[in-house]
């Protein structure tokens, strides 16, 4: 039988605690270091943080 190994999913089997969590797949992981997407997120996070900083002073 041919195995279908999804690397990102292997940690579910490490123990029961990990088995019951959510683990990001390949796409979600790649977006975390995708330069274009992260540049957009950089702008958005900065705006959000500036709003919170503004509300706190």
């Amino acid at each position: 039988m041919e195995k279908k190994v999804v690397h990102e999913e292997l940690n579910f089997q490490r123990d029961d605690k990990m088995n019951l969590t959510m683990i990001p797949g390949k796409f979600a992981r790649s977006m975390r270091t995708c330069l274009i997407w992260q540049f957009i997120r950089f702008v958005i996070i900065n705006i959000k943080m500036i709003i919170v900083v503004g509300k706190s002073h």
Partner: peptide, 15 residues
């Protein structure tokens, strides 16, 4: 909790 557990599991760190 969900996000922390997710990150620990993703990176293979027991807790």
């Amino acid at each position: 909790k969900l996000f922390a557990e997710s990150l620990f599991s993703e990176r293979g760190v027991d807790w």
